[in-house]
Design a protein around this nucleic acid. Sequence first.
DNA 1: GCCGAAGCGTTATGAAATAACATAACTAGG
DNA 2: CCTAGTTATGTTATTTCATAACGCTTCGGC
Lengths: 161, 161
Amino acid sequence: MGADCHHAESAHPGLEGVALADAVAAAQAQCERTRERLTPPRRRVLELLLESDGPMKAYDLIAAYGQDGEPAKPPTVYRALEFLERLGFAHRIESLNAYVPCKMEGAGHRAAFLICECCGAAQEFEPDFSAQFAAAESAGYAVRTVTLEARGLCPACKVEG
Amino acid sequence: MGADCHHAESAHPGLEGVALADAVAAAQAQCERTRERLTPPRRRVLELLLESDGPMKAYDLIAAYGQDGEPAKPPTVYRALEFLERLGFAHRIESLNAYVPCKMEGAGHRAAFLICECCGAAQEFEPDFSAQFAAAESAGYAVRTVTLEARGLCPACKVEG
DNA sequence: GCCGAAGCGTTATGAAATAACATAACTAGG
DNA sequence: CCTAGTTATGTTATTTCATAACGCTTCGGC
């Protein structure tokens, strides 16, 4: 997470212990329902994302992959990320080249992020595009996916300036 | 531009001749008003963006930079892009790693894009965030900049399916 | 058991962006 | 002027991010 921040690390801590196991189990169950396979590399990358305090870069995941300190090969992680994104278990944040586990219930939703430029935290929220694309769609556009990333200061960092 | 598209190229053609010269002159004038310098590399990169039919990658700009076919050095182009973005003459599209000239009047506006996944065209539009961040801001967030990129099909590509 | 599809390991390479440092060009103050 | 400070450029090298390609393995339906 953003090491350039003066605040206490982990205003947004990652999961551990039972909470982590529960989250992984929920993903597992979701996969079984849809006949998808949460294979070891996919599970491992999901764990790493869930454990993290904030957005992780692909090469952070690569470096952290092996419990013995052995890094993964890049395609291993990129393939797992592709899977996790497809299932809605993770999101890519384009403006950071980084990844976060999904915090919202249910797949298929539209994700959006508030990204703190001070501490690096990325807060997921549910955007409202009800009016946003009305004009585009009536002009013949077919909107399929939307990336919305807002950058600024989170409450904690704003206060301390 | 998207060569993987079956449609006539240039549904969204770039500028040339007088229109190009006018656009560059307008940027020049804008710079003079604000005491900024539209130096040769900056002007050259702006020209290339304006001439293009669609979003250009940084290394497309690097390759096209020299009129004699000589490529630029990467920092030359990246620095020019940084300037053009700062002045509002160009925008970066995060989900494409690509750049477009700004089509809106006046600097300082918020940009958003409709990106066609078939022909690669990127249509700029003025987003409306009036309601979008109300909850975040009342929770103490200070939103500074917003990236909004919608992907789908433009009217032309949608019709032909 | 056989077959096709999906997934993985591995090597190598491609694409995007920046660090660092030296030189040159503007410009405000004397 | 001219000169000190700032802004911009040129250049080399490197870092960071991502994917191509290929062969082997595993899974699940027939």
